[in-house]
């Protein structure tokens, strides 16, 4: 076992297979979870016919999407139309490469680069291309509007998100995701996590990241790019069959990725919340998974709870509320750190 773990030719493919496999395997499960939980929250039954408790519903959906006719609308920009779904999915799958999910540094992360969080920011900011190009190439007004909204929204909320991440970078003194997790280790357990650091400054940064991550993944209440009541389905109106499935997978995969970032940055990654006996027996990856589950549940919960924002409210929230708050918060974190020295 030890020898296998020290062999680069085995370990590196293994790392990639674990992460990409997990993200892709999480997608069908998540579609089922989302529909069931939404149904429960709205006192409906949700999918319950295919398999026990509707568990085989994702399989049925997959088969349906696979065998659907692939419709190509008239006068679309063919090359870009085909490129867009891939351009959306690929950065989403690349992003988790720097996220550590366990304490064993031979198995995780795929690449512990010293600019880890910058790589992550770069990849998440690239997902917008898929949406924008899909919207433009479809030759459809609604799609175009969806794409326009997506680009404006992503740029606006990226700033707030970046600023809240910078406060974590200040606390850690490093851009490596692994160092960020290790910086949250301590005898106080969950009180050492970045959320509770410099109360309430860490909490504010977490809140800003929480709102910005909803906006970055185009999820409710920020799902204006695909607002079905006004834009039919927004940027993916014209897409069908597997190309639509790729957008669908990308959305869920980015939910998983950004939740993992949240867990890593603010909630102690794989660390146990209580640093004494019965809790430390649970292995780190399991803690990571549990925390991940909480945030994915949060995504669904918010979707069932909050109404969609109006476009001007979205912009006002991003630029006039989140951005100044994030700036002031960052400033205060810097002052406290300087004062501690």
């Amino acid at each position: 076992m030890e020898e296998l773990l020290n062999n680069q030719w085995i370990v590196i493919p293994l790392r990639i297979i674990i992460v990409v496999g997990f993200v892709l395997a999480a997608v069908p499960v998540l579609t089922w979870v989302e529909r069931r939980v939404l149904a429960l929250m709205q006192i409906r039954k949700g999918p319950n016919r295919v398999g026990p408790a509707g568990l085989l519903q994702p399989v049925a959906d997959g088969i349906k999407l696979f065998f659907k006719e692939d419709v190509l609308p008239e006068r679309v920009d063919r090359f870009i139309y085909f490129l867009a779904p891939a351009g959306f999915l690929i950065p989403v799958l690349c992003a988790p490469a720097v996220i550590p999910w366990g304490s064993d540094d031979r198995l995780t992360p795929i690449a512990d680069v010293n600019i880890g969080i910058l790589f992550l920011l770069a990849m998440t900011s690239l997902t917008v291309y898929g949406i924008v190009l899909a919207g433009w190439s479809s030759n459809n007004k609604y799609s175009l509007l969806g794409g326009l909204r997506a680009s404006a929204q992503t740029i606006s909320y990226e700033l707030a998100m970046g600023l809240s991440i910078i406060s974590v970078v200040l606390l850690t003194g490093s851009l490596s995701m692994r160092d960020m997790v290790l910086n949250q280790q301590g005898s106080l357990g969950l009180l050492n996590w970045h959320v509770f650091r410099f109360f309430p400054l860490g909490l504010i940064a977490t809140g800003i990241f929480l709102i910005a991550m909803l906006a970055e993944t185009n999820r409710a209440p920020f799902d204006l790019p695909e607002a079905e009541t006004e834009l039919i389905a927004g940027y993916h109106t014209e897409y069908s069959s597997m190309k639509f499935a790729m957008f669908f997978m990308g959305e869920y995969a980015s939910m998983v990725t950004i939740s993992a970032v949240m867990v890593t940055l603010f909630f102690g990654g794989w660390l146990s919340p209580l640093p004494f006996a019965p809790f430390t027996w649970i292995p780190g990856p399991l803690w990571f998974l549990m925390k991940l589950g909480v945030f994915i549940y949060f995504f669904i919960w918010v979707r069932a709870t909050l109404p969609r924002l109006r476009y001007d409210m979205l912009m006002k929230l991003g630029w006039l509320r989140l951005l100044p708050t994030a700036l002031v918060n960052l400033f205060l974190v810097a002052i406290v750190l300087w004062w501690q020295k």
Binding site: S125, V128, Y129, L133, W136, L148, S151, T154, I155
Partner: peptide, 12 residues
């Protein structure tokens, strides 16, 4: 991530 998205935004 930012400049080219701005370009595409303006073109659209």
């Amino acid at each position: 991530g930012a400049i080219m998205v701005l370009f595409l935004f303006t073109i659209m």
